[in-house]
Amino acid sequence: MKNRIYTIAACAIALLAASCSKLDNYEDPKETLKGSVIDAGTGKTVQTEQGSGTRIKLLEISWSDNPTPFYIASMQDGTYNYTKLFKGTNKISAEGPFVPLVQTDNTGATVVDKSQTVEINGTKTVDFQVEPFLRIEWVGEPTVNSDGTITASYKITRGTNDPNFQQNVTDLRLFVNSNKYVGNNNFDDRYSTQVNFNGSEANATLNQTVTITTKGGPLPKTRQYFIRVGARIDYGLKYYNYSDVKTVTVP
């Protein structure tokens, strides 16, 4: 009797082990796509925010003319890197705070198409040359004032000559945060200054050096702050353009 139980148990274990054989052996996606979104005018990457900023749009056209798009979010410095793609032919473009790479006219006909068709296999680098709506540059270094606030100077210029993308600037912020990820998605609203503009008010401040100071009184001492200026124009989804991130140490 005991023997029989052992036999049955042994069989069961053997069957169980046999069933473990792996059948779903399609190879993992492991191709890499990386690159940058670059301001054609300055050669620098276009600063953005993670999440609702720049994203890379992939249309895998190797099996369908009308694929559902796949998006890769860009990092805040305007670079992207994705390491888990399948092999295939992709039509790649980018969306963000710059003149759209693919434009259509009122009838839906494509008038501008700067997307790139790329065979993804191994590691592929795809850069995009774009015209940002706005260029925001620091002027000099931010300083810590005697009252504990931070003052910085910046200059905003238009990044494109195309009047279709020169709408009014609607608002501007000095974003302050305690870590290097700083932007509209991530900031300390106690200290971040916000300026709203009506109509074309902001045009007068373009191409000028403007000074801005943090709000909300003195910043807590003996730590680092990460600051960044962001502004946006009244076009489409109103993406922010950003300056790069400056680190300020409040002693």
């Binding site: 259509t104 009838t107 839906g108 489409g236 989804l237």
Partner: peptide, 16 residues
């Protein structure tokens, strides 16, 4: 509205 999306010749977001 300031947003435009055109699909197959039809403006599916926005009105002239």
């Amino acid at each position: 509205n300031n947003i435009t999306l055109i699909d197959g010749g039809a403006r599916i977001c926005g009105i002239p």
